[in-house]
Design a protein around this nucleic acid. Sequence first.
DNA 1: CCTATTTCTTGATGTAGTTCATTGGGACCA
DNA 2: TGGTCCCAATGAACTACATCAAGAAATAGG
Lengths: 203, 203
Amino acid sequence: MSEDELTFKQIQPLLNYFHQLIPLNKDEKLLVTELFKPRLYRKRQYVLQEGDVCNHLNFIVRGCLRMYKVDGKGDIHIIQFGAENWWLSNIGSFHDREPSELNIDALEDTMVLQISHENLLILYKTAPKFDRIFRVLIEKSFVSLQKRLLQNISSTAEERYLTFIKNYQELSSRLPQTQIAAFLGISPEFLSRLRNKQGNQKS
Amino acid sequence: MSEDELTFKQIQPLLNYFHQLIPLNKDEKLLVTELFKPRLYRKRQYVLQEGDVCNHLNFIVRGCLRMYKVDGKGDIHIIQFGAENWWLSNIGSFHDREPSELNIDALEDTMVLQISHENLLILYKTAPKFDRIFRVLIEKSFVSLQKRLLQNISSTAEERYLTFIKNYQELSSRLPQTQIAAFLGISPEFLSRLRNKQGNQKS
DNA sequence: CCTATTTCTTGATGTAGTTCATTGGGACCA
DNA sequence: TGGTCCCAATGAACTACATCAAGAAATAGG
């Protein structure tokens, strides 16, 4: 297989993703292929470290990332997981070109397709359709974030946990409990108790 | 003053708002003036009621709205306030044309400029620049929502309250405590205790 | 101006969730 | 193949916050 064919194969999941939102023509597909670069992150490797400016949008092809904040006590709070076909970046830092307060790292070996800030500007300029694509994309992210916030201000830890395993069934069996607890905003110990409670009810 | 001049005067805050994000030309300003309609909501009046499809994007000129969910117990959870120069709509319901699970109503007499779903499509079609404008706009909303979520999973009620009065200084003195409590996700009684604690420390 | 309603305060008690400390079980690595 | 680390489980004590109840203060509206 030639290098071009290899690149094209790697980029396919992203083209499919865009195509599902808004169909692309040949030129636009080519542009995406040129401007997005594949990159592999090893488990535990940083994708973005606190203090650096977020310089890429990341589309996850396989594996799993997390974006989190470390608080004054050294505790980790996970804002978002990113698995297959999700985007994960610090949008604020990326657009305002400001140092990030958040970290992104890999929970598993993870393959991403990433576009640099510079190349994104080229993409918008060359194919304004992407203004719309990314508008639609972020609207969807906004809605799901809003749902999560609502859950957080209105539900108990148990309800949040049950919603989580329902919404992210696959992820929840793949991730260690500590990570899930840091995502739900509860202590790992309490999550452990919740899980046992669930288990007992089943039998 | 002629009717046209009146409309133009009413629409001015919105034109300024857009202009600050991305400068508009004359035609684009005209288009905005034609497609957005002013509307007054009285205190307690619904802007959007659960079960209806959200049919307008609302830009608030003066007054204050809230968007909230009523849970199974009848308790209210406020997802967002909207005051001067903010947008407030149920984006999910608006774009997917689905019944809303959220309500929006007025906490004060409130003047909004609103664009219907239909007219927004015309706006996007006629002036693609608005794809970009609304992309940038929602990116900003996304970032502030993310900050709020982070606060919620990582901070105590007291910290959240202090952040709230810092970020929304003016709003916090204008709204009843019950509303602020429903926004922070705590009981009004506990908020009252927090406030007294603050007061005592000062003296 | 008066009354009705909403809003705020305060106390007593209950509970969801935390923290700390200990134990045991895997997974990775030399 | 035996340590080293990370992860899960569990008990005991603690705390942040909720709930219920009742009264005081403020506000709205006719």
